[in-house]
């Protein structure tokens, strides 16, 4: 994880196309300027970045299921619960499952766990739009870097 660069997913551990779910692993960095403010002397992963982490796992899931035909943009966050704290060095398991594929949008259920304990969960909606110029190749490269491999791609 590189919080300042919004690189929230270290690697994709599982992409289950038939089951429409993805599992990813990340480790909260030991040091980051983010922790200087959140909070001084008591570093905690901000809820907004946990939400971004769930959104990125969901986004890679949708990209994989749609085979990079559309770019998912976060449109809404529903039923978000932050159940426990995590700080520097915590291992995170991020899971995402597509619960609905609409026309031009998709909905996922997603959660983050650490050491077997649920940290947060939410239902996320994404608007699916044509890729802005040049972004498709970058997203494919980024996905490959973290291990999102599509069969018969």
């Amino acid at each position: 994880m590189r919080l300042e660069y919004f690189q929230m997913i270290d690697r994709v551990a599982l992409f289950d196309e038939a089951g429409e779910r993805l599992e990813a692993h990340s480790t909260v960095p030991l040091e980051s300027p983010v922790f200087e403010g959140h909070f001084p002397g008591h570093p905690l992963m901000p809820g907004v970045l946990l939400t971004e982490t769930m959104a990125q796992a969901s986004g890679y899931l949708i990209l994989g299921l749609l085979r990079f035909t559309h770019m998912p943009f976060l449109a809404s966050v529903e039923k978000a619960k932050f159940r426990s704290f995590v700080g520097p060095g915590a291992p995170l398991v991020i899971s995402a499952a597509r619960v609905h594929q609409g026309s031009g949008y998709a909905v996922t259920r997603t959660k983050i766990a650490s050491d077997g304990k649920t940290i947060c969960d939410a239902e996320l909606m994404f608007r699916l739009l044509p890729f802005p110029d040049g972004l498709s190749a970058q997203m494919r490269a980024q996905a490959a870097d973290i291990g999102l491999v599509l069969e018969n791609a």
């Binding site: 449109a75 609905h100 609409g102 026309s103 031009g104 949008y105 909606m125 608007r127």
Partner: peptide, 21 residues
């Protein structure tokens, strides 16, 4: 955005996929 929420609820309620695109 609100219409996406409505579409999601309609899709679920009627078991269909509104062809919004």
């Amino acid at each position: 955005l609100a219409f996406l929420d409505i579409a999601f609820a309609i899709d679920k309620a009627f078991g269909i996929k509104l062809p919004l695109e």
